[in-house]
Write a protein that binds this DNA or RNA. Structure first.
Length: 205
DNA sequence: TACCAGGTCCTCG
DNA sequence: CGAGGACATGGT
């Protein structure tokens, strides 16, 4: 079922090429923050003032909180791993996840995103879109880890596939399976119990 | 004009 | 535990 949903989303939307965002080893000229800030460096992020960092990331929203939390992660990396992502990513995937989640500012989704997109290890990222979609389809799971298990037990254990599948779900959730859903445009409505309730009125017995 | 985002933390019951 | 609020700018 989950596998079929993935297949149909992929057929409809095509590859989303979410990650890597840039060519291997290169920074995106626009999205890296540009040469002015020169902050792709753990030590520099630790040193910069919260207010200054917040100003730089302002357009992302929640910038004051995010500035602190970004620095928390850099501090964690610096204190425990010599500021090297590589040594962090050598860890066992489950240990890595629990360590990341213990950092204030990194919740389950962010931890899994780091593991999937930065460490390139197979773990399935669950976001608000995915929860909404999966619940409308008819699955009862509500907790993050439960929904994650559902995907990971239904799909091949592939980092590339998890990456693509998550991106496809975001595309569906953002543009079609919205809070107020556009079911007529949905490529997987045939599998959806919400769609069936709406478009197949009950009749009297 | 409203509503919501590729969340997380904290507080309260 | 689960729900609800705070954080805050930008896209549609």
């Amino acid at each position: 079922m989950i596998q079929e949903i993935y297949n149909e989303l992929y057929s409809s939307f095509g590859p989303q090429h979410w990650w890597p965002v840039t060519a291997e080893g290169k920074l995106h000229p626009e999205y890296s923050g540009g040469p002015k800030n020169n902050l792709i460096d753990i030590k520099k992020i630790i040193k910069i003032k919260n207010e200054k960092l917040a100003k730089i990331i302002k357009s992302s929203g929640y910038h004051n909180q995010k500035a602190k939390k970004l620095k928390n992660f850099c501090m964690f990396l610096s204190e425990n791993y010599g500021g090297k992502l590589n040594s962090l990513f050598k860890k066992d995937i489950n240990e890595l996840r629990s360590e990341l989640v213990s950092v204030n500012g990194i919740g389950p989704e962010t931890a899994d995103s780091i593991i999937l997109y930065a460490a390139k290890k197979p773990i399935f990222v669950i976001d608000a879109y995915t929860k909404r979609i999966i619940n409308r389809i008819g699955y009862k799971e509500s907790k993050y880890e439960e929904i994650q298990k559902l995907f990971m037990q239904s799909l091949p254990n592939s980092e590339k596939l998890f990456n693509e599948c998550h991106a496809l779900l975001v595309e569906l959730g953002k543009n079609i399976c919205k809070k107020s859903p556009l079911c007529s445009k949905c490529p997987i409505s045939a599998h959806c119990s919400y769609y069936k309730t709406i478009y197949t009125p009950k009749r009297e017995v």
